[in-house]
């Protein structure tokens, strides 16, 4: 059993950071959605606010870690150009995918979407974390603000989901070794 350095970074990027963000979303959205004075006592709001702030800043940090490791560590291995005359493209995932019409769309659509939309996730998550920290418990009484933050939070999750799903599929078809 062996995990190469490249595979290790791909795991850290996708299965540690990326998956942690997606898994944490459920808790974050439940916390934001239920932050209503008619549902929770003032003491309850105070109690969950602390958890929500820590959780949302952790999610924002994880989202930044995911895109930074993905773009600057893993992606160069994915797009590395093979030397002239290379027949075995297994160490060059981008070129391996493009060499076969049946797999080319994984790069042209999947990777192209993933690498760009993924960057929207940390920006949107950071905005949500800041706003929740700024308002604190008083956010419970601000319906419009809470809805706007929910939109940003869902977009952040959507962007991360697209990036995560295509990352998983592409790794299955053309893994980084």
């Amino acid at each position: 059993m062996e995990v190469t350095l490249r595979e290790g970074w791909a795991v850290i990027h996708g299965m540690l950071f990326g998956a942690a963000f997606l898994l944490a979303f459920g808790g974050g959205v439940a916390g934001l959605y239920s932050l209503r004075p008619q549902w929770v006592t003032a003491a309850g709001i105070m109690e969950r606010m602390r958890r929500l702030k820590i959780g949302l800043w952790a999610m924002a940090g994880i989202a930044w870690a995911t895109v930074i490791t993905g773009t600057f560590i893993v992606y160069p291995w994915y797009r590395a150009k093979p030397p002239e005359g290379t027949v075995d493209l297994s160490a060059f995932p981008r070129y391996l995918l493009l060499a076969n019409p049946n797999t080319a769309e994984w790069h042209k659509f999947g990777m192209e979407w993933k690498e760009h939309v993924g960057w929207l996730a940390p920006i949107a998550a950071t905005v949500v974390a800041f706003a929740v920290s700024y308002y604190g418990p008083s956010l419970a009484k601000k319906v419009g603000e809470r809805r706007a933050l929910m939109v940003f939070f869902v977009v952040s999750f959507f962007a991360a989901t697209v990036a995560g799903l295509f990352g998983a599929f592409i790794t299955k078809v053309a893994p980084i070794r």
Binding site: V127, F130, A131, Y134, Y135, S138, E145, A148
Partner: peptide, 15 residues
């Protein structure tokens, strides 16, 4: 305290 919404509006637009 009823906090002003300016900083949150600023963060949303900047995002």
């Amino acid at each position: 305290v009823d906090l002003p919404n300016g900083p949150v509006a600023a963060a949303l637009v900047a995002g």
